[in-house]
Write a protein that binds this DNA or RNA. Structure first.
Lengths: 149, 149
DNA sequence: CAAATTTATATCGTTCACGATGCAAAAGTA
DNA sequence: TACTTTTGCATCGTGAACGATATAAATTTG
């Protein structure tokens, strides 16, 4: 079989791509009532851990480019979840801070992780098995992270 | 810790999302010379396995909605990789077939999977470990696939 | 200190991804 | 056979992702 490797079923990346889309989709029922998307939820997770961060720190934490994060933050600002202020020491920076609405959303989002865990267990009958993938995923991510240097 | 679960580092989905983006990005150096994107490459994988499929079959195979696949196919048609003809028995269907260019691209793409495997081994020092994730990913995908019914 | 370089963010263009909706052909039903 | 429902695909609008490019502020260098 000369083209055996070109079979879809042999591709790890396709599985990651699909699993990512489907798990992100599984968040939708919980995020939609809050009026946020999954990437916006990720930004909130970052800010709930540490408020008042420059754009670059948020981008690095999420391993996204700033040209992805900037428009994302603009939409979140328009939605009243954050504000972006000029940095004090470095005026090139834009410091992203949670608004009252952004802070309060944490309470509404509190149960989302366990809701998702329950959904996944209910739909797959598993949980432990998926936790076992975490170290491998971390190793893969760590290896692929450093592309440009 | 009331909000412990809301920490980014505790989220499986974020890892899948990141791993997916980074592995897809790892294909870029190989796909860009061919003038195709990763989703277009997936469509080609499907058609290389079995030519002349209706839009719906391709979408189902990739677990994507037709409203994602249709514009994708339109771009691929414009690029001369495929043609879309009206179905014979069922004239609602659009049968997607590879063109000469689409068929020949298989030869150019033949080594991409092993190139990627080599890259990943070189960057992470691992390979076996990632193969171990496959059954878990399949189980996750299978469980989450059936959302609407 | 002036000039060159780097850094932080923003803008633009293209391509997904997907919910919502539309439409015509096919299938099922009265 | 007429009517309803379903199916297959397309279109539209919104929100990511990201490469390429722009701009101003900081930093480094000569």
């Amino acid at each position: 079989m000369e083209y055996e490797q070109l079979k879809l079923d042999n591709q790890l990346c396709f599985r990651l791509y699909t699993a990512s889309r489907l798990t992100t989709g599984a968040y939708h029922p919980y995020l939609e009532p809050l009026g946020i998307t999954y990437p916006q939820y990720l930004v909130l997770l970052v800010l709930w851990e540490k408020d008042r961060q420059p754009v670059n720190d948020i981008a690095r934490r999420l391993m996204l480019e700033t040209n992805t994060v900037t428009p994302l933050l603009q939409r979140m600002e328009k939605a009243g979840l954050i504000v972006r202020t000029k940095g004090q020491e470095d005026s090139r920076q834009r410091i992203v801070s949670l608004t009252k609405k952004g802070i309060e959303m944490r309470e509404q989002a509190k149960h989302i992780p366990e809701c998702l865990a329950t959904d996944i267990i209910q739909k797959t009958g598993e949980e432990e098995e998926f936790a076992k993938m975490i170290p491998s995923l971390d190793k893969l991510i760590e290896g692929l992270k450093q592309t440009n240097n």
